[in-house]
Write a protein that binds this DNA or RNA. Structure first.
Lengths: 218, 218
DNA sequence: CCGGATCCGTAACGATACTG
DNA sequence: CAGTATCGTTACGGATCCGG
């Protein structure tokens, strides 16, 4: 009987970058972190979001992240009582890493590839770096059955899922959200075309959308 | 005869992070970028620095980075006339990504692993984020036959290789440099022990070392 | 020596099926 | 729902070889 010590692949370099990549450099890992930045997730949430990942690989990545202390498991309060994965504080400190990579990769989004999946959560996350600060608004976005809660204060916070009610909620389809994200449409235009409905404080939605508008092309 | 279209693996997500990882997420890629941030490199430079990479993989990674427009090949001026790889502007824009990952991975460097390679170039790169600005100094570091030129102005620049002469040069061994990097020693202490020699403006070296000192442990 | 290309074994990954 | 088990495929690692 052989006892196999799990020997992870490593660059064996005493360098912050190399050590970081030793831990989170494997395939899918940072995408899992990105999803968790929107709040706790269940196993099947990942399977839905990370289209193409296989169940064994997801299980292995999650186990590794838990072992590294970047992710922890928790039980959701009743009546849900489902088990979820959530970031630890060490894992949450990966946010600047994710944001920098997303910022650099933004250039490739200008020419969309056919068949690529779009998720409003990913878009909202990347909007964090657009927010210049100075507002105090809490609004919600409902996109095809999913709810995102955006809080603009000193910083921008965004989480997916049920949360305290906000001043206003905008409901729209993913395609419309995509257009907002890329500046191909405005809230007013989408509203006129019936692609966007606002409940509550309309001004709040307009202010938030304006604060998070894409950088002008010049 | 089959014509095979090179089909790269992709996450197929319309997301900046996923697209970035599609391009630079493969093994070794960001380490190659890191090395290039110190200046142009030759093929064999990579082989020496990236201990463990194989020649076929290095060739493939470089070819891919060139194809993506992040790296370009150039001929060094005579009498060297060697071919080198260097970053394009798009590639150089990966510096914040590398720095953020290195910052996050810094925590793992506190407990060194046996057998990990140390490179003063990697250390100097990660010192960029320590520099608070406000100085105007150019100094050199000679570490076991390698020359690094550090310029502190509005920002910190560091390149490896021959460059315009600086105000001062400090010569030391890698182990001594490591101690400086981690705050386990000071320039004065190393000098007294004969582990560090200064040519030229001693004050310049002291100022640079102080500006780049590791964050205090509290 | 430099700058790779080629071949092959192994480990990581991907697809599918199955289970408590 | 939350995984495990099995198996084929691809990427990676190790070694050698080759033209300039």
């Amino acid at each position: 009987m052989l006892i196999c010590v799990a020997k992870r692949r490593s660059y064996h370099q005493h360098c912050g970058l190399a050590r970081a990549l030793d831990v989170v450099g494997e395939r899918w890992t940072l995408l899992i972190i990105r999803d968790l930045l929107l709040g706790p997730r269940r196993y099947t949430d990942f399977l839905r979001s990370l289209d193409g990942i296989t169940t064994n690989l997801l299980a292995e990545r999650l186990a590794h992240l838990v072992a590294e202390g970047l992710v922890e498991q928790a039980e959701l309060a009743p009546p849900g009582r489902a088990q979820v994965y959530r970031l630890t504080s060490a894992g949450a400190e990966l946010e600047p890493v994710v944001m920098e990579l997303a910022r650099w990769g933004w250039r490739y989004l200008a020419k969309p590839r056919r068949g690529d999946r779009f998720d409003p959560g990913w878009a909202l996350l990347s909007m964090k770096r657009r927010y210049p600060g100075g507002l105090d608004r809490q609004v919600g976005f409902e996109v095809e059955g999913r709810a995102f809660w955006v809080s603009l204060g000193e910083k921008m916070d965004v989480v997916e899922g049920a949360l305290p009610p906000s001043e206003a909620v905008a409901a729209l389809h993913a395609e419309a959200f995509k257009m907002l994200f890329f500046g191909a449409a405005t809230v007013q235009a989408l509203e006129q075309e019936g692609e966007l409905q606002i409940r509550g404080d309309r001004q709040a939605i307009l202010e938030v959308a304006h604060a998070l508008r894409p950088p002008s092309r010049l």
